[in-house]
């Protein structure tokens, strides 16, 4: 914790799941330590940018809402991602833009109106001791977060910040960058891995059927239901799994693997969602319908690079 850290917020009510996330934990996956980081990289990146922060600054990932905070000092903040009916001193506030709070101001989150996860960034960033190179909170691994032990926010917590931020931006995200998370969505997928071992009909179904987001969904992965996919390989010798991998266990129902996935696994895979497609899926509520579209690397890489270039 650095000498300039101070109390940014007091947690009046923690709600179901609020986690501190920087860009993720890297360079330790060979030890079985997962990547962590924001499930919706897009929303997280915008929140930080709108608060005037550099890429990688720790921000809060608020899932399902229910969080109530009181500002411990005057703060510049921004909220991006899901619409969780956020209010500033009881009045609805605008997402996707810079907001100024006074000491004692209340920031509350209700229930999801659109999407699942909102990101709250504060100018200068939230402050916590890095564990294995990152503050990203992975509860399953008991790593990261404000206490370093992988705990979600709890009632009464005091959230430290590094700050105040050096500049006082007045920023707003363009409309094109504010997704309607409830709209039907097509997810870009880079094929690979064992795709050739799936039957022809299953490959057809994978890219032509509608897939329903199951309620068995968390930061590890999202189950999808639809036609049964068949692979001539039932299981493999376990191997590394990268972000967005679409694995198909013997029940034929795909699972998209997200930030807190296990580092190795042995089910056949169709390929990987692009990082932005994985982000988009992380905002889908159970019951929503998604489709997969195979994209080439020539399309996926420039799309990702252009996304990242907005935050340089």
């Amino acid at each position: 914790m650095n000498a300039r850290s101070a109390i940014g917020f007091r947690v009046e009510r923690a709600g179901p799941l609020a986690l501190l996330q920087d860009a993720g934990r890297f360079g330790v996956r060979h030890l079985g330590v997962t990547q962590g980081g924001p499930a919706d990289l897009h929303g997280w990146a915008w929140a930080n940018y709108l608060a005037g922060n550099a890429w990688g600054t720790p921000a809060l990932e608020i899932t399902f809402g229910g969080l109530e905070l009181v500002a411990g000092q005057g703060l510049t903040v921004a909220i991006a991602g899901a619409d969780l009916a956020a209010k500033h001193n009881g009045k609805p506030l605008s997402l996707w833009r810079t907001i100024n709070l006074k000491k004692g101001d209340q920031l509350t989150f209700g229930t999801p109106a659109n999407g699942l996860r909102a990101y709250l960034a504060v100018a200068g960033g939230f402050a916590a001791e890095a564990v294995l190179g990152s503050v990203s909170c992975v509860m399953r691994e008991q790593l990261g977060g404000f206490d370093g032990q992988g705990n979600r926010l709890a009632d009464g917590d005091e959230l430290t910040i590094t700050g105040p931020g050096s500049d006082n931006p007045e920023r707003e995200a363009p409309a094109s960058e504010r997704p309607d998370y409830s709209a039907p969505v097509t997810l870009n997928l880079l094929t690979g891995a064992q795709i050739a071992a799936f039957t022809g009909k299953s490959i057809f179904d994978a890219f032509n059927a509608e897939w329903r987001v199951d309620n068995r969904a968390d930061r590890m992965g999202v189950r999808l239901t639809g036609p049964k996919l068949r692979c001539t390989i039932e299981s493999l010798i376990s191997e590394g799994i990268s972000l967005g991998a679409i694995q198909v266990p013997p029940d034929g129902q795909p699972i998209a693997l997200l930030n807190d996935r296990q580092t190795i696994g042995g089910y056949p895979r169709l390929g990987n969602l692009t990082p932005l497609a994985a982000s988009r899926l992380a905002q889908c509520q159970p019951g929503q319908v998604v489709r997969f579209r195979a994209v080439s690397i020539e399309r996926a890489l420039p799309e990702y690079r252009s996304f990242r270039s907005m935050f340089d």
């Binding site: 010798i237 590394g240 190795i264």
Partner: peptide
Amino acid sequence: VDVVPSYTTLL
């Protein structure tokens, strides 16, 4: 960024 060795593969 990362390398993940496992039995027969390296990611």
